[in-house]
Nucleic acid binder design. Structure first.
Lengths: 208, 208
DNA sequence: CCGGGAGTCGTCCTTTCGGAGGATGGGTGC
DNA sequence: GCACCCATCCTCCGAAAGGACGACTCCCGG
């Protein structure tokens, strides 16, 4: 029997997952969590085989889904974590994999794909949704520009409409440094202006 | 007995809604639809009391959720349509109301709110999620900025990362005019730069 | 141990953007 | 006909952004 914890802030999604798993004789939902904290507590308490983890939780949460994944994976006899989310942005996928997720599924996936992924995860295998898999393939094939974390940080501020001066202020660096980062970003993304950089970054899933 | 049709492209969400309604003795799910087209067909065939309609359907759909809502509301003995979606952007809300929806709910709403909304809709009443209601109140209180179609056109170009000169070229106007439009946009959105304008416009659902 | 990338800071210079102000013509509504 | 909004165009000017140099740390991997 595969023991599963569901972590998602949408009651509807939790009910849906429970309903889907209730049909499967070898899968049992042992706990539900509406916040990352609850997910961690449930993982410690129930010691499940698999945790289904959403990445986006409602505002007001201190921890993110990725953060919770990282913490859970650091437990003794840690359960496998399957990330289940709406978006397939590169940043999210990479963040999830980095945090130790053994699978990445989209919420519009057909149920059987989900069930298979749970079984695969419980067996210690990796399970990526086909969409995600092909996305990663593309990334490998065409060596994607990768921005450093600092550069992404700067770019996020730009996307929020801040000026270089303001960005310098919030990141505690000089305006010169901000412009330097931006120059690197521009050349990496092959653009000539901040707005174009934001636009391209959005398309490539670097920014949300 | 309230007869309900569920239209959502996520199997998980459909399962969740079905599970939630199965507990209620007076609500019956008579059909599920994974596309706007199926939603219309089911509405004609089953003649339900209420249609639960998602606004976002997977890519590749010709009709949108709002379009399907409009069509369904034009039927003889049309069912009431409850819009159920993830986002609360102004554009979405207004579009849904305009299309004839009698309610607007968010997917992270607590189940009882959802159930109540279905009963209210079946009785011909309007049901807005509290979050949405207060949003509309704010809108009324603070007369919302509305950009002219030309201004939106310019702002889209800005969001795509084009310079004023490029925008002038593609829209066949002088750069001066572009700047003039932008000046109006800035004052309407109460921002000071193009990137901030794009950011605010995105938040308010003016831009995608 | 040395190279190179990342992050930090600087200067000088050019271009672009945005603010302020005004002007014209064409709609639409009352 | 008048008011109002929109789209179009203009000038002048200060501020912001971006390009082109160089240079200093730190740290990782060959």
């Amino acid at each position: 029997m595969i023991r599963v914890v569901i972590a998602d802030d949408h009651p509807i999604v939790r009910a849906g997952l429970k309903a889907l798993f209730s049909i499967e004789p070898d899968i049992e939902v042992v706990a539900e969590a509406a916040t990352p904290q609850e997910a961690l507590e449930a993982s410690v308490r129930e010691n499940p085989d698999v945790v289904l983890m959403d990445l986006q939780f409602g505002s007001g949460e201190t921890t993110t889904g990725a953060g919770a994944t990282r913490t859970i994976r650091a437990l003794d006899a840690a359960p496998y974590v399957l990330v289940l989310t709406n978006y397939d942005s590169d940043a999210d996928i990479l963040g999830a994999v980095e945090a130790g997720a053994s699978g990445y599924l989209l919420k519009d996936a057909p149920p059987h794909e989900l069930i298979n992924a749970v079984r695969a995860a419980a067996a210690g295998e990796s399970a990526l949704a086909p969409v995600i898999a092909s996305r990663l393939m593309n990334r490998m094939r065409e060596p994607r520009v990768s921005l450093s974390s600092r550069e992404i940080e700067v770019l996020e501020q730009v996307g929020a409409g801040r000026t270089n001066q303001e960005i310098a202020g919030t990141l505690f660096i000089s305006e010169t440094t901000v412009k330097s980062h931006l120059a690197h970003i521009f050349s990496k993304l092959d653009v000539a202006s901040r707005t174009a950089a934001v636009s391209v970054a959005r398309q490539q899933g670097i920014l949300r």
